[in-house]
Computed example of a mutant assay.
Amino acid sequence: MSNALTHPLVRAYLASVDTEGAVLPDDRRRDLMADLREHIESVLPQGADDAAVQQALDQLGTPREIAAAAIAEEPGVKPLQPEGSVRTTLTLGMMVLAAPFWVLGIGLVLAVLAAVRIWRSTAWTRRDKRLGIICALSPLLVIPAAAAPFAFARGLGSAEFIGIFLIAMVIPLAGAIRLGHSAARLHPHAA
C-alpha cells in the first residue's frame, strides 16, 4: 500500500464514501471502495503533499456525489434520507420507554410500534434497522432471563421488579444511541 492511501485526507475521504454508501449491498460497496483506492493510488505519487492530495480528491467529487452515483446505478437501492428530529426522537423514545412498561402490556405495543417505525424509516441502513428492531424487542428475552434468578432465589419484590426493568432498558438504550448517531449524520448541521 502506498503512502497515498495512508494520507489522513485520503483515509477520511474513503471513510466518508463508505459511510455515504452504506445502503449499497456489501459486495457493491467493497467494489466501489476498491476502485476508489486503485484510482487514488494511480493518480497520487508517493509522498504527495496535502495540496496535491486535496486537489486529486476534489477532482473525484465529494464523497456524497460518488456514493449517490453508485446508488443510482444500483437497482432498488434508495439513498438514506433524513427524517425530522421529532419523528426520530419519538421512535427512539418509544424504543427505550417500552421496557419499563412491559409489565402493563403497553411495553409490547410500544416496542412493536418502535420496530415498525424503525423498519419504515428512510434514515437508517438495513443493518441499522435490524439492530434497532432487535434492541427494541430485546426485553422479550431480557426480562424473563433477569427475573428467573430472583424468582427461584427469594421471590420478586418491588425492588427486584425495578432492577429487572432497568436492566431491560440497557439494550434498547444502547440501540437508540446508535440509531440516533446514524440519523444525525444525515443532517448537514450534525456532527
Rank of each mutant, 00 (worst) to 15 (best):
L9Q: 15
S2D: 15
G163R: 11
L92C: 10
I171T: 14
L108I: 04
L92T: 02
S85F: 00
M1A: 13
D58T: 11
A72D: 15
F150Q: 11
A151G: 03
V77P: 01
V112Q: 14
L141P: 03
I143R: 11
M33Y: 02
A168V: 12
D27A: 05
V142M: 14
L108E: 06
M33S: 08
E83K: 00
M94K: 08
T122L: 04
A52I: 06
L137D: 07
Q54Y: 04
M95V: 07
L110I: 04
E41C: 06
Q54E: 15
G61T: 12
T122N: 11
D49H: 13
G21T: 01
D27R: 09
V116T: 08
N3D: 15
G180P: 05
L113A: 14
Q46K: 12
V96I: 09
R30D: 13
A174H: 13
R28M: 04
S85D: 08
L36Y: 08
W119K: 08
S121D: 05
G132T: 10
T6Q: 15
G132L: 08
A114I: 01
A151M: 05
P82Y: 00
D31L: 09
A4L: 11
L173E: 04
A56D: 06
E41V: 02
K129R: 15
I106W: 12
M94Q: 07
R37V: 03
E38S: 10
A111K: 10
D18F: 05
I134Q: 13
D50S: 13
P100K: 05
L90G: 03
I164G: 09
W102Q: 13
L173W: 06
I66R: 01
A176R: 06
G157T: 11
D128Y: 08
T19F: 00
A12Q: 05
L57D: 05
G163N: 11
T125C: 05
A56M: 01
W124D: 04
R178E: 06
I71E: 03
A136F: 10
R130N: 10
L14V: 12
P100N: 09
G175N: 15
M33A: 09
C135I: 10
A190W: 11
I133N: 12
A52L: 09
P45Q: 15
R178F: 03
F150A: 14
L44P: 06
S42V: 04
F165M: 12
I164F: 07
E160A: 13
